[in-house]
């Protein structure tokens, strides 16, 4: 009986895609609700204690320190 030729090697891209898929699945499970890799964490900065000006509702405890930024993304 004739020997069939060896099957063609799976294109590398198929292996790469599977690896990416596995990585994406792991990421989805482990980081989906944390956002370490893909999350945008907003502007980070230091704050300073605000001058005390209590109101009935409550006072701003902190103000944004370190020039320029005042909330926003």
């Amino acid at each position: 009986m004739m020997t069939p030729p060896p099957p063609p090697r799976t294109p590398i891209v198929v292996h790469v895609a599977l690896a990416i898929g596995a990585f994406a699945a792991a990421l989805l499970i482990l980081d989906g609700r944390r956002g370490w890799l893909l999350g945008s964490s907003g502007e980070r900065g230091d704050v300073e204690r605000a001058a005390a000006a209590p109101t009935a509702r409550g006072a701003a405890v902190y103000v944004w320190g370190g020039g320029g930024y005042h909330g926003g993304k």
């Binding site: 907003g42 502007e43 704050v47 944004w64 909330g71 926003g72 993304k73």
Partner: peptide, 12 residues
């Protein structure tokens, strides 16, 4: 604001 380190994440 992280009360311990007094670092904050800002947003609007």
């Amino acid at each position: 604001v992280d009360t311990a380190s007094e670092e904050a994440i800002g947003f609007d």
